[in-house]
Design a protein around this nucleic acid. Structure first.
Lengths: 178, 178
DNA sequence: TTTATTTTATTACAAATGTCAATAGATAAT
DNA sequence: ATTATCTATTGACATTTGTAATAAAATAAA
């Protein structure tokens, strides 16, 4: 069993979620400049995390059913971050705040270990992501991500996938045709 | 004091480094397909970590004096990884293997905390790195990295910096002129 | 120090992706 | 169900970055 599902199960069992938030399509859960030290569990719908550089958006990550998402930099260092988190359709998330989360983590060495595994997992994911983005050819970038995350192409509109893949929607459209 | 220097100091004080390795210019410390669960401390010289995609190299990270470097994916999951680590000039590194490192980490909760901070630190660095690479304009990519790591441009030949910045040496050359 | 070799910088050219605009299609709202 | 809005596709064109060849510079060797 992977550490993330494990973590979610334990938080569920101990009923540690604070509350549920309902987001309308396009609504923001977090915007640039804010501090957000919550962790969210997506119950339904989908979200994306993105940053803006000089009027251009770069999608960093998506979240859908049963995924944990957070503004991880803000969560870790408790400072404002540049990330936006936006719902792509009507979305429900559950919330746990950092204080509660930390006390959960510190309540047992097993929990500590789980959180450690989750972080390690994230590091490995980020290393893969780095390679995805570095790949020069748009076709190869597409193939890499399609192979690892095929479900993504069913859940998420192409324009956001294009942004995630570091290309324009036009280029993605042309790749899919060929 | 940052967690990485802290970690290095403690390993120094406890004299846990196994041995020193001397590398000639262009020599490899690790190649694709190998398992390497060591952590290295650079004593002198410089190295780069890179991957190869279809005959193209992508530089992921540099190491120079007093930096820790590792094939982190291989270190974490103890599997072979695609990374190469190569000396860019005559280089000396000290080595600690994972087993010894783990027992060091587990010998006190303070050490555990330090390692945790180092990992968190790495996550934050990787998130910055992701933004660096995503930035569309080569000029902006250059500026971002120049601002955060000016010393890099003194230590490392341009062709590797170009690779790190996801552009050709020609493009980097054009940017520096303007 | 001089020569040879390797590395880096520059230039002209080609190729690829982005931009813009128009159309078709899909999804959401009324 | 109908309308309105948002998304995907396609084509023409411009821009930018990469490629390849050459020149210059730096480094290593003699």
């Amino acid at each position: 069993m992977n550490p993330i599902s494990n973590l979610i199960d334990k938080i569920n069992n101990q009923q540690l979620w604070d509350r549920e938030i309902e987001l309308e399509r396009n609504e923001y859960l977090k915007v640039k400049g804010s501090i957000d030290t919550n962790i969210y569990l997506v119950k339904s719908g989908s979200l994306r995390i993105f940053v803006v550089d000089e009027f251009e958006e770069h999608t960093i990550r998506f979240g859908y059913k049963d995924n944990l998402i957070a503004s991880l930099d803000s969560f870790l260092n408790e400072k404002p971050s540049d990330f936006y988190i936006q719902a792509l359709k009507k979305t429900h998330v559950k919330v746990i705040n950092k204080k509660k989360y930390k006390s959960f983590i510190e309540s047992s060495s097993e929990n500590k270990e789980i959180w450690f595994s989750v972080l390690e997992n994230f590091v490995l994911q980020q290393m893969e992501r780095e390679r995805d983005i570095l790949t020069s050819s748009p076709i190869e970038r597409y193939k890499r991500v399609l192979e690892r995350s095929p479900q993504l192409f069913q859940e998420i509109p192409n324009k956001y996938i294009a942004s995630y893949l570091r290309m324009t929607p036009e280029t993605l459209s042309r790749i899919k045709k060929s």
